[in-house]
Design a protein around this nucleic acid. Structure first.
Lengths: 336, 336
DNA sequence: GAAAATCATTAAACCGGTTTAATGATTTTC
DNA sequence: GAAAATCATTAAACCGGTTTAATGATTTTC
């Protein structure tokens, strides 16, 4: 590979001049510029991003730290969110370093990544990485809230508790109190938040929570989300046990619909159905169209990216943003 | 930020020693190692990935060059493929630099990215980037074939022509020759390949291609793929005009099914339906289950990544791989 | 037309690591 | 117990850019 020195020598100028021709930070006379460019082309010279980054302490790369599990696929929610992150950074001229590698806990393994800032997905409790980025002086924005919540940490999040509180209120107002809740995996914080929200709705309205049955998705028991919905309803259904089902996602609802069809249950006639997210954007396409919450996963991503871009200009900026979810009424719930 | 020099000074050793403690490339005695680590922790020192990369000429980052259009979302196919790339690189210890920025054609704007190799999605005709990466000495693997095809270029691809040839044969063998083909956008090479494949099937069997009607997806006319399927069937349907429909994706087929339901058409009784891909993995979930081609998008990604990993060890390796697509017969086609 | 001002270019230091050859201390050998 | 071998550490060069202060050439000023 040709380096800046090779070009300088061949063009009979100093490396500073070659540097200025490529970076355009200082004007270089027309004839010199042309000669340097000519020589560079002849030698197949391209400036090294790494060397440049070292000198200017800037990479125009943003990091996205995201765990990836070996056996499970990315959820529709994650995909949409990443999409939002990518789009916003792309618009702002940043590239994205996707880091899915697991953390080691060996001090010698950490290093300051070639990024100007980082978005971190789903921080863990007392996440040590947060303090580490702080020490490194790397701007950080979380997607999902830190635990414990701290004032100086920027993040964007959904309010899952509030969202399922709303759904609970909606169902209760429509006369449903015997509800099957097909929640997500028990180990996810969203699952806990959503369960609390639903319980809260019952508490506020003074109804008994006894006829609410909560199940959790389990990778061992269900081959995929649709299967989760299908199998759950098939196995647990008894006439008059439930009047409504809440599902984690639209895909789960799709499975529920198939099971209902096989059981001869009309939706929404005999069973109301509502999904807490519409990640695969299937709700509109089902028959009947599925009443669902729109989580705005993509917006979560773009907002996080926007905040990070601001922070990369001024580290002291702190912003915490809750993205509102909206309940979209379609045709799968009825008034009892 | 503390640097290696700060640590060396504070620990009373040379920077070479500090370097060895962190890189472990040379043994350093126990007491010295501990002292250095202690001091480093106190100073909040973390090695700079950029400086290290410059010295060792290696980043353990792989690049993914992928165009992103402002108005359209990533397709299910792209998402799955990227997923495959990410998973494989993650497994092999690489991180991914996702580059969605548009190309400039200014010589001074190119630079050697901080990557050890690159995967490039959908190369254009005579793509100048291919030669550029070659000059830079950066290993390259394409997803999609280069035009013109060259022996020294590594790539993975589907054989879209062959795949729709197979689908055509299957339909013809089942007595279908009046076919509506809801193809993808006219400007995509896959669309062209698939149309050729279908025509080929008719030619081979000696049937007339006259009753085949091809339509193309258009972002202006259709709000989303499902809408494309729905609107197209609704607007074009006349009794006995077609006995079968081929759709680009499972989502398009979903729209077709909804339109068919509204038109009172039984699938597969009065209309057979087949999809050329199952990106959203909806085929299994439809009623009736949709006969579809499985493109193995994720495998395309993992294979590309595997080849790149090999090339990053030995630049001279060249591999060209066609990922076979499989036609999966489910319940949406019938024998006439 | 000499002095002052402007302009283009350069030499050298710097960014923060790694690596090679040399050095000095310690251990082994006989 | 001196010579040889081994071991741990260091000084200095290097990776390939950017930037600052200095220099020499050119233009402007009066």
């Amino acid at each position: 590979m040709a380096t800046i020195d090779d070009v300088a020598k061949a063009a009979g100028v100093s490396k500073g001049t070659v540097s200025s021709v490529f970076s355009k930070k200082r004007p270089i006379s027309r004839p010199v510029t042309e000669r340097v460019l000519e020589v560079a082309k002849g030698l197949g010279y391209y400036p090294s991003h790494v060397a440049r980054s070292l000198a200017i302490k800037k990479t125009m790369i943003a990091g996205l730290k995201m765990p990836i599990s070996k056996d499970s696929v990315m959820s529709g929610f994650e995909i949409q969110m990443i999409n939002g992150v990518i789009r916003e950074f792309s618009k702002q001229g940043y590239r994205l370093l996707l880091d899915t590698l697991p953390e080691h806990d060996d001090q010698t393994q950490f290093s300051i990544d070639p990024v100007d800032g980082v978005i971190m997905l789903n921080p863990r409790k007392q996440d040590p990485r947060i303090e580490r980025y702080n020490q490194m002086g790397i701007p950080l924005v979380l997607i999902g809230r830190p635990d414990p919540i701290e004032e100086k940490i920027s993040y964007v999040d959904n309010d899952n508790r509030h969202l399922s509180l709303q759904v609970g209120q909606y169902l209760i107002n429509h006369g449903h109190t015997a509800i099957l809740f097909l929640n997500s995996s028990a180990d996810m914080t969203v699952a806990i938040d959503r369960e609390h929200g639903l319980a809260e709705a019952f508490k506020q309205s003074g109804r008994s929570y006894d006829r609410v049955h909560v199940m959790n998705y389990s990778r061992r028991k269900h081959s995929n989300p649709t299967d989760y919905g299908y199998v759950s309803l098939k196995s647990i259904y008894e006439p008059n046990r439930f009047t409504a089902i809440i599902t984690d996602t639209d895909r789960v609802a799709l499975g529920v619909m198939r099971a209902a069809r096989e059981l001869g249950l009309d939706i929404p006639g005999e069973l109301s159905l509502i999904a807490l997210s519409n990640d695969a954007t299937l709700a509109q396409e089902m028959t009947p169209a599925l009443t669902s919450v729109e989580l705005s996963a993509e917006m979560l991503g773009t907002e996080a990216a926007k905040i990070l871009v601001e922070k990369m200009k001024d580290v002291d900026i702190v912003e915490q943003k809750i993205i509102e979810a909206k309940l979209v009424i379609r045709d799968s719930c009825r008034l009892l």
